[in-house]
């Protein structure tokens, strides 16, 4: 009898739950992120919380927690979960940080950051993606994320300097305005490399006016299954 009640409760809770991907998400964080060496607790708990499936096209929701990027339209992708976690850890976010993201995409990286820090400024060059991500982030009640539709090359001068800058679109150079808008002691992470080939994820640090870089890991634009 006792066991029957327990089963009933479990069934009911599953039925009433509005997020059917909780377990997928926890598995994603455990197997794809923690096991690959990401230790930052803030990044881990944020990625457990943010519902990644709401940031991908509806027909790909069941793949949202796969270990790969997914297409979001306009030739763009939502990054692989590990890359989002890795970039978040590298910039060392804390609750007082002010950050700039270049390349909002679907808004997922901004949402992950918004769970950790006070203000996230994010710029998207493709108007349709900018509008849809702004709407999505509003619907999900992220009040500390500010979206702008513009060319990310120029950064967001009005809100500079930033404690950290995350660039998600690959570049063959590091835009000078972004270095300028980086606070002294700040960190920027950016994928750089030869046009249209493999890129290197690069950490740029500014300290006492001196700028240094460290190449971290190779990244590549991953082909994805075409949505039918």
């Amino acid at each position: 009898m006792h066991a029957l009640i327990l089963i009933l409760i479990l069934c009911l809770s599953a039925f009433l739950q509005d997020d059917p991907y909780v377990q997928d998400r926890e598995r994603m964080v455990r197997t794809q992120i923690e096991m690959r060496g990401i230790k930052d607790q803030a990044a881990l708990s944020s990625m457990k919380k943010v519902q990644r499936h709401l940031f991908v096209p509806k027909d790909l929701r069941d793949n949202a927690y796969d270990d790969r990027p997914l297409p979001i339209g306009y030739g763009q992708t939502i990054s692989q979960p590990f890359i989002v976690a890795y970039m978040t850890e590298i910039i060392r976010p804390n609750k007082n940080s002010k950050m700039l993201e270049i390349g909002t995409g679907s808004g997922y990286q901004a949402a992950v950051l918004a769970e950790i820090i006070s203000d996230v400024y994010t710029i998207e060059i493709i108007t349709e993606l900018s509008n849809s991500s702004e709407k999505r982030l509003k619907e999900l009640s992220y009040k500390n994320v500010y979206v702008k539709n513009a060319d990310g090359y120029y950064g967001w001068k009005e809100h500079a300097p930033f404690d950290a800058i995350i660039v998600t679109a690959a570049s063959e150079y590091i835009p000078p305005p972004l270095i300028e808008q980086l606070k002294d002691g700040g960190r920027m992470i950016i994928p750089v490399g030869s046009p249209f080939q493999t890129q290197m994820l690069m950490l740029v640090e500014k300290k006492d006016g001196k700028v240094t870089t460290k190449s971290l890991m190779p990244v590549i634009f991953v082909p994805f299954k075409r949505s039918k």
Binding site: Y153, Y173, P176, I179, E180, S194, V204, V211
Partner: peptide, 11 residues
């Protein structure tokens, strides 16, 4: 390609 971090002007 490979612009110096010392470059401050418009690309």
């Amino acid at each position: 390609q490979g612009l110096s971090l010392a470059y401050q002007k418009e690309v």
